[in-house]
C-alpha cells in the first residue's frame, strides 16, 4: 500500500514540476513590457493561452495519477491504439529493458563537463577525451580501438570543421591553446 503511494507520488512529481513552472510563467506573462495599444491582445496572450492549457491538464494529471495511479485505458493517439491492438493480438507485452542509472549519471556528467571545459582546454583535446571516455562509459573495453578511433575521429572533426567548413571551434586558453595550435599545424591548418 505504502509502496503504491510512493509510486503514485513519483509518477505525479514531474507533472507537479510542470504545473508549478506553468503557474510561475503564467504570472510572468502578465508583466511583459510593451507599448499598450487599445484593442490588441498583447504579447502575453499567446503564452498565457498555452500556459493555461498546461496548468489545467497537468493539474488533472496530478489528481488522476494520485487517485487512479496510471493512465491505462485512456484515449491515445491513432498509433497508440494500433500499437496496443497489435500487442494484444501478439499476446506479447512490451519488453522492459534493464537499466543502468550509474551509466546515465556518468554520461550526463561527462556531457556537462565537455560543454564546460571546451572553451578552456579547446575542442581538439576535449573531444579526444570525451570520445574515449564515452566509449569506455558505454562499457566498451577494447582499449586500442578506443584510443585509435578517438584520435582519428578528433583529427577528422578538426580537419573537416576548421579547414573545410570554416567553423571557428574553441581553441582553449594557454597552455592548452598552444597544444591545439600544434595539432592544427600538423593538419596543415594555418
Amino acid at each position: 500500500m505504502q509502496n503504491n503511494l510512493v509510486e503514485r507520488l513519483k509518477g505525479a512529481a514531474f507533472n507537479l514540476v510542470l504545473f508549478l513552472a506553468a503557474v510561475y510563467l503564467f504570472y510572468l506573462a502578465g508583466y511583459f513590457q510593451y507599448d499598450i495599444r487599445e484593442g490588441q491582445l498583447g504579447p502575453g496572450f499567446w503564452p498565457r493561452l498555452l500556459l493555461g492549457l498546461v496548468i489545467v491538464l497537468t493539474f488533472y494529471d496530478i489528481v488522476l495519477g494520485l487517485v487512479k495511479g496510471s493512465t491505462a485505458g485512456e484515449v491515445k493517439g491513432v498509433l497508440g491504439n494500433k500499437d496496443q491492438a497489435n500487442q494484444e493480438e501478439d499476446g506479447l507485452p512490451e519488453e522492459e529493458n534493464k537499466r543502468y542509472p550509474m551509466l546515465l549519471f556518468i554520461g550526463c556528467l561527462m556531457t556537462l563537463a565537455y560543454v564546460f571545459l571546451i572553451n578552456i582546454i579547446g575542442f581538439a583535446i576535449c573531444t579526444f577525451l570525451y570520445l574515449a571516455g564515452f566509449m569506455y562509459a558505454g562499457r566498451y573495453r577494447r582499449h586500442t580501438v578506443i584510443i585509435v578511433s578517438s584520435l582519428l575521429g578528433t583529427l577528422f572533426f578538426v580537419f573537416l570543421f576548421i579547414k573545410v567548413v570554416y567553423v571557428s571551434l574553441p581553441t582553449g586558453v594557454p597552455p592548452f591553446e598552444g597544444l591545439t595550435l600544434i595539432i592544427y599545424s600538423l593538419l596543415g591548418i594555418h
Partner: peptide, 8 residues
C-alpha cells in the same frame, strides 16, 4: 491525433 501517447 496520430501519436502513440495519451492525447493529454
Amino acid at each position: 491525433v496520430l501519436g502513440t501517447s495519451t492525447i493529454r
